[in-house]
Design a protein around this nucleic acid. Structure first.
Lengths: 319, 319
DNA sequence: CTGAAAGCGCTAACAG
DNA sequence: CTGTTAGCGCTTTCAG
C-alpha cells in the first residue's frame, strides 16, 4: 500500500519501473484516489472559501474570479458563500467551513458581526483575509484598495476641474472602506487652491441608496456642481436621481464613482471613477491564505494595499 | 464514542438526559466535528460543484447564486470552478471534483469536449446537470430556458412591429442554446402575416462578437430595420456597432437581445430582451442534484424547461 | 439505551 | 527501495 501511495504521489523512494507499473494498473482499474481519505490522514482539506455578500455584485464576481484562479493554480478548491451580510448566515457558514476544515477564508466584511464573534473568528485557527477595513486591530489579514489615495484623487480631480461645491454620497463611515475614502476626499478639498465647500451624506451603499442620498442633497444644496460617490453603485443611483430632477450629467453636474465595475464603462454617460484592481485583490487574498495555510498556526496577519487610479470618462467635466 | 456520535447527530436511541450532557461537554470543550472524517465514514461529502465559463459573466453569477442558495438550504457547500470553456481546465476540474467525491456537478456546457470525454462524464457516477442543450442524448440532466419559445417571441414581436428585414446575430448553431433560438425565430418570421426577410449571421457569443457581426451585417444589408441577438452580450456589441455607423437605436434600427442580464435595464437605451429565469434555473439545477445525490446511483436524467418572456424596453419600436 | 469494535481509504513512520 | 503497521475522527453494526 505504501509503495502505491508513494508512486501515485510522485514521492521519493520508488524505483521508476515500479512506479510505472503502479500507474499502469491504476489506470487499468480506473482508480480514482479518494481525497477525503487523504484529507483525514494528512489533516489538510485543500479547500478554501470566500464569503461575499452576493456574487451577483460584479465587484465580488471579479474578486472571486481572481481568488479562484489563484486557488486553481495551487490545486485548491474554492467554496463560494453568499452571506447577504446577514449575521446568522455568516455565522452558519463560518461554523460549517470550520467543520469542513477549510484552510483559509476570504471575507468581504465582518463589520455586521458582534465584536465577540469577530474575536472568535480571529482566533479560530484558520487564516482569514478581509476585503475591508476593521477599526480595532484583530488578527485578520487584509487586502484593500488604497481608499485614502482614491478619495484624494477624486477630490483633487473635481476641485481642479473648478468645482467649488461638491457633495459626497457614501455608505456608513464607521466600517468598510468608506471612511478612508471620505477622509482622503476631504483632505484633498481642504488642500485645494481655491476654497471648496463640501457636504457629506451617509446612506446605503447601493444604487437605491445613492438615489435617495442624491435626492436629499438636491433638496438642500441645489448649488452643488459635482458629486463624489463612495462607490459606483451609489453613483449610478445618483445619476438616476439627477436626471430625474432635470439635471444633465455632466453638463449641470459632474459625478464620479469608486471601484470601476464593468457597468461603469457601459452606462450612459460612461462613469468617471476610481479604478480599483479587484481581480488582483482576490488573487492576492488567496495567495496570502495559501502561504499561511502551509505555515501551520505560525503565521501572522498580512496587509496589502493596492494602488488605485482615476478613470476619466464622460460623467465629469470642467465647470 | 457511539453515544456521543448519536447525541451530536440527534439520532434516535439516546436518553434525553445523556444527550444534554454530551452537548454540554462538547460546548465546554469547544468541540468542532470533523466533517472530513464524517465524509470518510459515510461516503458522502456534502459538497457540490458548479463549473461555469466565468463567474464575472452576470448570467452565470445569477445562476450560481440560485444554486448556492439551494445548496445552503440543504447543508451543502458549493465549489466554484471557472473553466473559460477551456477543455484542459474542464477535464482537470472534473477529475479533481471526482476525487473530492462531490455529489453533483452543474456545468454550463460540455460542448467543447470530445465526444469520448462527454461519455466518460455521463457515466462517471456523479449526477451532472447541464445548462445548455446537447445534440446527442447522453445521460445528463438539463435545465434550460425555453429557447425555441424565446426565439418565437422575438420573431413575432419584431414582425408585428412592422419590421420586414430582420438580422439575427448569434453564436455557433450546433451547440449550446443558440440553435433553438434561431429555429424559433425563423419559424415566427415565416408565420408572419407579411413576408419577412431574414438573414442569420454566426459569430462569437460575446459583445465583441456582436460588434463584428453587426458590422458585417451592415456592410451587406443596410436595409435591415431590426436585429434579434442570440444573447444580450451580442446585443450590446451590436448597439455599439450600430451607433458607430451613425444609426440611432431604436429610431433607425431596433435591437432585441436574450437573457435579460442586469445590464440590460441600465444601458442606454435600455435593451428589449427575452427574459430568462437565471436564478430559478440555478436553483432547479441544484435541486435536481440534491435529489439524485440521495438516490445513490439509481437516478435517471431529468429535464426542466423554464418559461421565458418578452421584456419590452427602449431599444425597439415600430417601424 | 449504551458501549465495544470494526472499518471508511489514505499517509507516515518504521522495519526490513 | 518496498512492505508492515498504526492511526486520522467519525459512523455503524452488533452485543450487552
Amino acid at each position: 500500500m505504501a509503495t502505491v501511495s508513494r508512486a501515485l504521489n510522485g514521492s521519493y523512494g520508488v524505483k521508476n519501473e515500479t512506479r510505472l507499473r503502479v500507474l499502469a494498473v491504476a489506470k487499468k482499474l480506473k482508480y480514482v484516489p479518494n481525497r477525503i481519505a487523504t484529507g483525514l490522514a494528512t489533516g489538510r482539506s485543500h479547500i478554501m472559501a470566500i464569503v461575499v455578500s452576493d456574487i451577483r455584485n460584479p465587484f465580488f464576481a471579479e474578486v472571486t474570479r481572481g481568488a479562484e484562479d489563484e486557488a486553481y493554480e495551487a490545486g485548491y478548491d474554492l467554496v463560494l458563500c453568499n452571506s447577504d451580510l446577514n449575521p446568522v448566515k455568516q455565522i452558519h457558514y463560518f461554523r460549517a467551513l470550520l467543520e469542513k476544515r477549510v484552510e483559509g477564508i476570504i471575507m468581504n466584511s465582518v463589520a455586521t458581526l458582534s465584536r465577540d464573534f469577530q474575536e472568535e473568528l480571529s482566533r479560530c485557527g484558520v487564516p482569514i483575509v478581509l476585503l475591508n477595513e476593521l477599526p480595532g486591530v484583530l488578527g485578520f489579514s487584509t487586502v484593500l484598495p488604497d481608499n485614502f489615495e482614491g478619495g484624494m484623487l477624486a477630490g483633487t480631480y473635481l476641485s481642479r476641474l473648478g468645482h467649488r461645491v461638491i457633495g459626497h454620497l457614501t455608505g456608513p463611515s464607521k466600517h468598510g472602506n468608506f471612511g478612508e475614502r471620505t477622509r482622503g476626499f476631504l483632505k484633498a478639498c481642504d488642500a485645494a487652491t481655491r476654497k471648496v465647500k463640501t457636504m457629506v451624506i451617509h446612506g446605503h451603499q447601493s444604487s437605491q441608496g445613492g438615489y435617495e442620498m442624491m435626492k436629499r442633497l438636491l433638496a438642500k444644496h441645489r448649488d452643488a456642481t459635482a458629486i463624489f460617490a463612495g462607490n459606483d453603485a451609489i453613483a449610478f443611483g445618483a445619476i438616476r436621481a439627477a436626471v430625474e430632477s432635470g439635471l444633465s450629467v455632466p453638463d449641470d453636474i459632474s459625478i464620479i464613482g469608486f471601484d470601476d465595475v464593468e457597468f461603469a464603462g457601459v452606462v450612459r454617460p460612461p462613469l468617471s471613477t476610481i479604478h480599483c484592481p479587484k481581480y488582483e485583490m482576490g488573487k492576492a487574498a488567496a495567495e496570502i491564505l495559501l502561504r499561511h495555510a502551509t505555515r501551520a498556526k505560525s503565521w501572522s496577519p498580512e496587509h496589502r494595499i493596492f494602488g488605485v487610479k482615476l478613470i476619466e470618462r464622460e460623467s465629469s467635466r470642467a465647470v
